[in-house]
């Protein structure tokens, strides 16, 4: 009985100390050095891990995911993602057939800050290496097209990659028309929507479907923003001044209620410029850069 009480008290102390450790996070000196990566040469590592290279690749992949997740979560300034590329590089050197590391990794790398390091060049390098290792993977070529399209707005190159990917045996039949649409009207929300819609319908992985749905919701939000800005312009023309808030436009009957995005966050109105943006807390942030139709 005495022992049971002692054990409960000690367990409480352990949990308490662990909580204390979490609170006084500054005490933990790990924060600065969790990002240390000693070995950066994939070639060396492949030899060093003996026959466990696939397992080691898994470990580095997990580290890459955690590094990404932790950097993304860490509030404020130190979102460096500084060893993300070396980690992915090591992972794919240890296991050159690690598809998910190329594909997910490219998305990680290409994301604009603060959601990622904003390095589409590294994403492309990673994917190109993947394609060299496995020339039969049309998905990698398709992803290259994506990176060019979505992050670099280089629709010519994007169309080129979509076309190359459609020529790889086993590629789905929607890739060839996608290449054509990209070439003709790359950058328009319409063509983007078509791109993601295709991905959603043909995705073979959950994360890809999640990603596609998210992008489609972002496109919806962009459509909404365009419509709202149009409505604000009409209001200004009619009343002679910009609305101070959505409430003004509800009163005049221009809006039926406070406009919200698909995540139920209200859009923000800038009363000085008449521009409309997402709520800062909306998970749809950050929206892709303004369109640059050719």
């Amino acid at each position: 009985m005495k022992a049971a009480v002692a054990m409960v008290l000690l367990l409480a102390a352990v949990v308490g100390l662990q909580a204390l450790r979490e609170q006084s996070g500054t005490l933990a000196p790990q924060a600065g050095t969790g990002n240390l990566l000693y070995v950066r040469s994939g070639e060396f590592m492949t030899r060093a891990v003996l026959s466990f290279d696939s397992l080691a690749a898994d470990v580095y992949w997990i580290r890459a995911v955690q590094h990404y997740g932790r950097s993304k979560l860490s509030g404020g300034v130190d979102k460096k993602y500084d060893i993300l590329y070396p980690l992915l590089d090591l992972t794919t050197a240890l296991d050159p057939k690690f598809d998910i590391a190329y594909r997910f990794g490219a998305v990680f790398l290409a994301e604009r800050p603060p959601a990622g390091p904003g390095r589409p060049d590294q994403a492309i390098a990673l994917l190109e290496r993947g394609l060299r290792a496995q020339p039969g993977r049309w998905q990698l070529a398709q992803d290259l097209g994506f990176v060019h399209y979505w992050y670099l707005h280089d629709y010519l190159r994007a169309a080129e990659w979509f076309k190359r990917s459609s020529e790889i045996p086993g590629a789905p039949n929607w890739l060839a028309p996608l290449a054509a649409v990209t070439l003709a009207q790359g950058g328009s929300r319409g063509s983007s929507r078509q791109l993601w819609q295709q991905v959603l319908e043909s995705a073979d992985a959950d994360w890809l479907r999640v990603q596609a749905r998210f992008r489609l919701r972002q496109l919806d939000a962009m459509d909404q923003i365009a419509a709202l800005e149009q409505a604000v312009k009409l209001y200004e023309r009619r009343i002679g001044s910009l609305p101070m808030s959505w409430a003004d436009m509800v009163r005049t009957g221009d809006l039926r209620g406070i406009p919200v995005d698909s995540e139920r966050h209200p859009f923000e109105l800038n009363p000085f410029w008449g521009t409309v943006t997402l709520d800062r807390a909306s998970p749809l942030n950050p929206l892709p850069a303004p369109e640059q139709p050719r």
Partner: peptide, 27 residues
Amino acid sequence: AQVVHAQPVGVGYLAQTAIYGLVYIAL
């Protein structure tokens, strides 16, 4: 890693971690 890279580790951190370890050992 911190010690090898000569990054400062506070006495507070050492003490807190040591106490945590000793309490866990007792448990």
